[in-house]
Nucleic acid binder design. Structure first.
Lengths: 205, 205
DNA sequence: TGAAAACCAAACCGACGGTACAGTACCGCA
DNA sequence: TGCGGTACTGTACCGTCGGTTTGGTTTTCA
């Protein structure tokens, strides 16, 4: 029928939306196949079992988000000719991106998995962990560049600071979901930006 | 048999631990009653259905955490004779408290619910929202006191700043769970403390 | 044309939430 | 002393649903 993993992608799209709104366990295969207009057998042709789906979901999420961050901070680096400016512009772009999402940011699969991880096998948890470490490496490198140019006004560990970017996003998403106020996540990103500014900016204004 | 809601508390204790480690949906009633050494009938005597359990879980979580925060920031206010000092001390005490928890902080039911909320009825979601708003009010009041004494070095909304406290906690817990590194949450709280310091402190050191 | 890829149909089975109901042990109170 | 409410136990049962399997069918492409 369909060529080139088209059905597979459809399954992942539908599954992702469902998982983010209800949790992994509450998302049934039956529901996914109905929405994808295939049969249960079709699903199990593409995924060995439900764990394989979770794995694919996280793996794809990492890839998409990585590309998004690549693009976003590349643009930021072009706009600002200085590592600190680039970071500040990048965070602003990120906040704007989140803010402009219709219906708010859909949420993060990694967070979703973090609170349901006993459901998953080691592969899935390991993929989840890899995602977070990837973000740490990314932002750590950027903060290293900044710290090479600007002295810090408070002595903080740069790995921890890098984790704060992911943490602020994840935390913002939770508060945002709990209150059903989509704008909160981007506001929190802007607060993080304010911290980075105060931490590295040479002159306090 | 047991008087004074002893069994009820036992059910809640066991359910809480299970929900935090596996998610609500993956926690079966059968499992709870086995660990609590009661029968299924006993469970349904105390809770109309599983949703009632979720509700009670969140309600209790709010109460316990509120008392904990009350105690912690009361102590902080005694130790520092200034709203800013009190906040900084309070955050340090909080970080220490989290750090000293054996096996790391167990996690937050509110976050757990946030990513599985379609499972729950309106009551549960409303209780969850109330919890987050309660935290906002609490920290907002503290930041108001600070801002009345010290000018801010960056103009930020105090409600958003208050949300950042909860957000940093929740985000830290997620990163911490994903990486299985219990120390991360308290580190993130200390970073938030650093931000508060830079934001309000009269002299940058 | 034939094999591999992509999918359909149907059935299985165990788990889980929830119900119903009869019975029991304890406790305070009148 | 006994009455009634509280706090359960025990058992039996039901409907649903979800993951998984087996076996067969169509489609695609080399």
């Amino acid at each position: 029928m369909a060529r080139g993993g088209e059905t597979r992608r459809k399954i992942l799209d539908i599954a992702q939306a469902a998982v983010l709104s209800k949790g992994f366990d509450a998302t049934s295969i039956e529901e996914i196949v109905t929405n994808a207009e295939i049969t249960k057998s079709g699903f199990f042709y593409h995924f060995r079992d439900k764990n394989a789906l979770a794995h694919a979901l996280i793996e794809r999420h990492i890839k998409v988000e990585d590309e998004l961050f690549d693009d976003l901070f590349d643009r930021a680096r072009e706009l600002g000719d200085d590592p600190l400016q680039a970071m500040l512009i990048g965070l602003k772009l990120l906040a704007k991106l989140i803010e402009d999402m219709p219906g708010g940011h859909p949420g993060c699969i990694v967070a979703s998995a973090a609170y349901q991880d006993r459901l998953f096998d080691r592969d899935v948890r390991e993929a989840n962990s890899r995602a977070v470490l990837g973000w740490r490496r990314r932002f750590r490198a950027m903060f290293d560049d900044i710290a090479n140019v600007y002295p810090m006004h408070d002595s903080v560990d740069l790995d921890q600071l890098a984790d704060m970017v992911s943490g602020t996003l994840e935390g913002g998403l939770i508060i945002s979901r709990a209150l059903e106020e989509p704008s909160i996540t981007s506001q929190q990103v802007m607060l993080l930006r304010s911290y980075v500014k105060l931490l590295f900016s040479p002159k306090v204004q």
